[in-house]
């Protein structure tokens, strides 16, 4: 579905050129849930912007559904940490902006538990509801690939748990592939089929872990042997967990 082939990215200021990403490659298949973890400032958000088409790669290529990525597209929607809902539109209007299919909008409102809030403005919703609306908006355009850039970072633990479950249910129901950018290892281990570790300067993929218990999709996994083993491996890689 998504393939990054030896991509590099740098930016220049008046003094010098800064190489952010160099020779980075990975693939994501249809319906797969992949988490990307890495230290702050290593270039994760730059990578998100490259995949979304907001920035252009300097070297290498990004393919989505066998087509080269050059511009943003509704097939690669980003849900970010920031509040990116149009706050001057109601819940319903946010969805109506991207889809004219009334039945689909109503189904998505039902799916995300927002039917009773369709006339509300985003600022009247809780943090968790806002994230569910952002997810509904991505699904309204039938995006088969969603990039989530630390979407749960500002949520409290109770809301996070509920959102994780909602996300897993919706992703499997709609067969959506997800790339989750996160700092939270428990989040990555509990939700993903695979974890990519990003690091270095310039950044690259430093490690890749298939989650052996991914079919369990249980967030209470801290006691499992595989979990402890993975955490140890990540520590050895220098990733601070």
């Amino acid at each position: 579905m998504l393939e990054l082939k030896n991509i590099s990215f740098s930016y220049k200021d008046k003094k010098r050129e800064y190489q952010i990403i160099k020779d980075l490659s990975f693939k994501i298949s249809e319906g797969e849930f992949v988490s990307l973890i890495g230290p702050s400032g290593c270039g994760k958000t730059t990578l998100v912007n490259l995949i979304a088409g907001y920035l252009q790669v300097k070297e290498g290529e990004i393919f989505f559904a066998n087509k080269k990525v050059s511009l943003p597209d509704k097939n690669r929607v980003v849900i970010s940490q920031e509040d990116d809902l149009f706050y001057w539109m109601t819940v319903y209007e946010n969805l109506k902006l991207v889809s004219n299919d009334e039945n689909k909008i109503n189904d998505l409102l039902e799916l995300t538990g927002l039917s009773a809030y369709k006339r509300y403005y985003p600022r009247q919703l809780s943090g968790g509801m806002k994230k569910r609306l952002a997810l509904a908006r991505a699904l309204a355009v039938e995006s088969k690939f969603i990039i989530m850039d630390e979407p749960f970072a500002s949520q409290d633990y109770r809301i996070k748990k509920k959102l994780y479950q909602d996300l897993l249910d919706i992703a499997s129901q709609k067969n959506v592939a997800i790339l989750l950018i996160t700092h939270d290892l428990d989040e990555a281990l509990g939700l993903s089929d695979r974890i990519l570790v990003m690091g270095g300067n310039p950044a690259n993929i430093k490690g890749e872990f298939i989650i052996p218990f991914s079919e369990i999709k249980d967030l209470n996994i801290e006691e499992m042997d595989e979990y402890i083993k993975l955490k140890k491996q990540l520590k050895e890689l220098g990733y601070n967990v």
């Binding site: 907001y54 511009l71 943003p72 929607v77 980003v78 990116d84 149009f86 902006l97 991207v98 355009v141």
Partner: peptide, 11 residues
């Protein structure tokens, strides 16, 4: 971010 979202959704 709103410009990016608008271009992502092909508005």
């Amino acid at each position: 971010i709103y410009r990016n979202i608008a271009s992502s959704f092909n508005l």
